[in-house]
Design a protein around this nucleic acid. Structure first.
Length: 136
DNA sequence: GCCAACGTTGGC
DNA sequence: GCCAACGTTGGC
């Protein structure tokens, strides 16, 4: 199983919306690197759900329950969508500031390439973030 | 195929 | 609101 991090602006779609809806279609990604990460996701993979612009923290973990398929919102081009459902809310959100100053997370793709909307998370980074959230 | 110009994202 | 980082576009 692989781990991931997906970003969303709370004003557009936030973690609470996912909890309420029970699932979400992750479409509209128009970046090749992010798209390739979506395509690498397998059912059951877990993805940190990060709030950008507001919050600036990871608030929960989403689970892939439908692997990639053609993005229904794509008018042209070769794009993909993935469906997520809520897996678990973090007891304590993990902030960007915490992650930035953590030596164990300095190599994280999310930290190094902050604009990427979908990025891979290593097993070590995953565990470290879980421990920061005190939600073991 | 290079690279300058431009647009977008997102933290600060 | 500013700006750094990055992707995309288009002229040559």
């Amino acid at each position: 199983m692989n781990n991931w991090l997906i970003k969303s602006e709370p004003s557009v779609y936030k973690w609470e919306d996912l909890e309420k809806d029970g699932k979400v279609v992750w479409d509209g990604v128009r970046n090749y690197a992010a798209r390739n990460h979506l395509r690498a996701m397998k059912k059951g993979d877990l993805a940190f759900f990060y709030h950008s612009n507001e919050g600036l923290n990871i608030v929960g973990i989403a689970e892939v329950f439908r692997e990639h398929y053609p993005d229904p919102t794509a008018r042209d081009g070769d794009w993909s969508a993935v469906d997520f459902k809520p897996y678990k809310r973090l007891k304590t959100p993990v902030t960007l500031a915490q992650m930035k100053k953590d030596p164990g997370l300095s190599e994280m793709v999310f930290i190094k390439v902050s604009r990427l909307s979908v990025s891979p998370v290593t097993e070590k980074e995953y565990k470290r973030i879980i421990s920061l959230s005190t939600d073991v």
